[in-house]
Amino acid sequence: MTPWEADLARREVLLDEVRAVLIDVLQLQQEPDELDPDAPLFGGGLRLDSIDALDLVVRLEAGFGVRVVDSELSAATGAQALRTLNTLVDRLVAAGAT
């Protein structure tokens, strides 16, 4: 396996774990593969609201042992992290989740 293939494999694992947390927190009926990684989490997409987002962040932070949103992030960066499953995984990777 090349280094980039290993990176993508690690990312795929993180994505699946975030999908599982999302399904559990929101008690979604969908299968994991129905949660597209670039679909919007808020608004018309998976229709999260601010309470859902808080639950999701708490669960992710507890599960991965990293800060998903913290006071050192600008409002814009914090908002960007919660836009899609992929931006959440980006944030977990940046925060050192493995």
């Binding site: 009926q29 679909a39 919007p40 018309g44 998976l46």
Partner: peptide, 9 residues
């Protein structure tokens, strides 16, 4: 196109 969120299984 990652538009499954617009559908219902």
């Amino acid at each position: 196109l990652q538009l499954q969120w617009r559908l219902s299984r």
